[in-house]
């Protein structure tokens, strides 16, 4: 397994602990963006609010266009979060190829999308809760999470 798959699998292990209605145990289950949006709503419900969540289409099945549209809304709003809440632009961070995620469940690209959720978690008002949860995970997973956060933060430009 290469490092990108390890990143994706480790972040899926972390995400699987969130309690949201949409399935989110396996990579293919999150490629429609629904579970990710619900998780973001749980992490910071003020920013990822119900009005925003209502724009995420559920039950999109295998419709790649609708899945990609959902993923675009998720990615764009996370980028908004960095800008508006943390006061940072993400410069030089290779944004995920959303079509590769929606069409092929590309784990390299999915890992980069999930990596951005970490950036939200470590800046949200409930970060203590979420970081303490991360610290309960296996050391191998924690190590991947740490490296992913460090890499992301290298791209923060105020």
């Amino acid at each position: 397994m290469d490092e990108h798959e390890i990143l994706c699998d480790s972040l899926m292990t972390w995400l699987s602990n969130f309690d949201v209605p949409a399935p989110h145990q396996y990579p293919h289950e999150v490629t429609d963006g629904v579970a990710i949006a619900q998780i973001l709503g749980q992490i910071d419900g003020e920013f990822f609010d119900t009005a925003w969540l209502s724009r995420i289409k559920e039950d999109v099945g295998d419709n790649f266009r609708l899945k990609t549209n959902n993923l675009k809304k998720v990615l764009n709003h996370m980028i908004d979060y960095f800008r508006e809440v943390t006061g940072n632009e993400l410069v030089g961070f290779q944004l995920p190829d959303l079509m590769a995620i929606s069409e092929q469940t590309d784990k390299q690209q999915l890992g980069r999308l999930l990596q951005l959720i970490l950036g939200v978690v470590v800046n949200c008002s409930k970060k203590q809760h979420y970081i303490e949860e991360i610290m309960q995970l296996d050391e191998d997973v924690q190590h991947v999470v740490m490296t992913a956060i460090q890499e992301l933060m290298q791209h923060y430009v105020p």
């Binding site: 809440v85 940072n88 470590v122 970081i131 991360i134 610290m135 050391e139 924690q142 190590h143 933060m153």
Partner: peptide, 29 residues
């Protein structure tokens, strides 16, 4: 210091995550 024992992985992880808890939102790593 070459005589200093290497930090255990557990310690490195704890230090990192504790530093995040003490970090101001939005500040660099």
């Amino acid at each position: 210091d070459p005589n200093k024992p290497a930090q255990s992985n557990e310690r490195v992880l704890a230090n990192f995550f504790n530093s995040l808890l003490n970090k101001k939102p939005g500040s660099p790593a």
